[in-house]
Every structure is written in structure tokens, then in C-alpha cells.
Write a protein that binds this DNA or RNA. Structure first.
Length: 269
DNA sequence: ATGGTTGCGTAGCAA
């Protein structure tokens, strides 16, 4: 079972690039982020006609996640538990029925968290957008812990908006006061990992300079000024099934690209 | 260097 995550930065803007990549990469299931569309406006028929099951969790203008699958999906859930007042569409779950195993897939778009404000002691304040990010990560930790208790294969795939370590950025020194790289952000990411999840790309591609995002601005792609912020976390039962992984970097050089590229794993399932 | 670019939606925000 090939599982991919791809922040497409707007479904309307990717109506050519996304089907082209799907045809080329042939994943079985894809978690999409930043569809930037309400459910009713998602071009469902276009993908269904190409053979995809489509489950969306959208909102107007911003955010929005979806799952495309060639395999059957069961028990689809929308929204991250833990705050009924949270209206941002950033989480979708489904059970993917593979040939030999079922896999619980969570597609996530973790809040960016910028801008960050700092107090008199130059510490980041846990309020505003950054406070929302940290609170969201604590809710995700609780959900990730509940899913571990099922002892089923679980994959947490998406745009985490977290640079885990300095080697995951071409210029880490420029990110030190950014919500993607603050110590508090990285610690919150480690708290999820340390429940017992495996970070698939780091496990299989431990070398520095492996990126998944290059900003549209200031020639970031041409200068290879990238960061690695799209991740797939595997429960122990999923990690046991891991046979391969990769990053489709070439997509960033294609026609009208997203600023993120697809990241994928292969599971024996 | 307070620049630079893209998407959504059609102004200005988010990233």
C-alpha cells in the first residue's frame, strides 16, 4: 500500500499538476492539505472519473484536507477531537482497506503558528496564532495516544509545519524565532513522536538536506533553500510494515507547482 | 534587505 501526503496549496490551482502526479506516482491513497475549498466546490467528479474515492473536509478560502483513495475507505471522521469550538478544517481520518491489512490513516494540516510574539524575557507567548498551534498539537498528541492504544497500524500523514531538527533546513539560523522551529514547537512534535511513533522519512533517509517545501519567494527553489515539514509518523504496527519511502522532489520543478512536494511511504499491507 | 510570490476571491489575509 503506497500512502502519500501532499500539500497542494489550492485544489483549483492544481487541477493539472495533481492528476498528472497521481498518474505518474500511482499511490493507493493520498492525504491532501490546503485544498482551500468548501466540500461542495471540490472537483469531486474529476477525481472520481479517474478512479478515486474522494473524502473532503473543507472550509472557505483557507485550510481544508482530503483523502483520495483507490482502496475502500471505512469509518471516515472529520475534525480533530478535543475542542468543539474549533472551526478550522485541518484533520481527517479513514481506515484504508488493503489487500492484507487495514490501516488507519490520519491526514493533518498542523497550524503554521506565525506570527509569534515574545515577552520581556524574549520567550514566545502561548497566545494568538502560536497559542492555537501549541494547543492543537496537544490535542493531536491525545488523539495519537488513543490511536496507539488500538494496536492497529496507524499513519499520521501531513503538513506538520514543524522543522524537527537543524539538518531539516538549508538555513536553520533564519528560522530560530519562527513558529516552525521554536524549541517549544519542536518539543511538542517530540512529545507525539515519543509516544512510540516512527518518523518514516528520517528513519529511511537520515542524511541532511532532505526537504519537502521551498518558498515561492526569493528564489528559494533555485537556491535549494528548503525545509522538511511534511512528515509521516507510523505506529509500531505500521512501522513493522514499512518497506520504502521517498520525496517526489521533481514535482517542485514542474509546471505551476505547489510550494510543497509529495512525500510517500510503501507499506506491506 | 521589512524585500520577495502565490492562492483565494476579488480586498486583504495567509503562508
Amino acid at each position: 500500500m503506497k500512502i502519500a501526503t501532499f500539500n497542494i496549496n489550492g485544489i483549483k490551482a492544481r487541477l493539472e499538476a495533481l492528476p498528472r502526479w497521481l498518474d505518474h506516482a500511482r499511490p493507493d491513497v493520498v492525504a491532501l492539505q490546503e485544498i482551500k475549498s468548501v466540500d461542495e466546490a471540490f472537483p469531486r467528479a474529476l477525481f472520481e472519473d479517474l478512479g478515486w474515492r474522494v473524502e473532503t473536509h473543507g472550509q472557505k478560502g483557507f485550510n481544508g484536507v482530503a483523502i483520495l483513495s483507490r482502496l475502500p475507505l471505512e469509518d471516515v471522521r472529520r475534525g480533530l477531537p478535543g475542542d468543539e469550538s474549533d472551526e478550522q478544517a485541518r484533520w481527517i481520518e479513514a481506515t484504508v482497506i488493503g489487500e492484507s491489512r487495514a490501516v488507519r490513516l490520519c491526514g493533518l494540516y498542523l497550524p503554521n503558528g506565525n506570527p509569534v510574539t515574545f515577552d520581556a524575557a524574549d520567550q514566545p507567548e502561548a497566545s494568538g496564532k502560536y497559542g492555537y498551534k501549541l494547543a492543537w498539537m496537544e490535542r493531536m498528541r491525545a488523539r495519537a495516544a488513543d490511536l496507539l492504544a488500538t494496536e492497529e497500524p496507524v499513519v499520521l500523514a501531513g503538513d506538520y509545519n514543524i522543522i524537527p531538527q537543524p539538518e531539516d533546513a538549508a538555513r536553520p539560523e533564519t528560522w530560530t524565532r519562527d513558529a516552525l522551529f521554536l524549541p517549544q514547537s519542536r518539543a511538542a512534535f517530540r512529545r507525539i513522536l515519543n509516544l512510540g511513533y516512527t518518523e518514516a522519512i528520517r528513519a529511511q533517509h537520515p542524511q541532511p538536506g532532505v526537504y519537502t517545501f521551498w518558498d515561492y519567494q526569493a528564489g528559494a527553489w533555485e537556491r535549494n533553500n528548503g525545509i522538511r515539514i511534511d512528515h509521516l509518523l507510523l505506529s509500531p504496527q505500521a512501522a513493522d510494515l514499512l518497506t520504502g519511502s521517498g520525496i517526489d522532489k521533481a514535482e517542485r520543478a514542474g509546471e505551476k507547482p505547489s510550494d510543497h512536494v509529495p512525500v510517500w511511504i510503501e507499506l506491506e499491507a
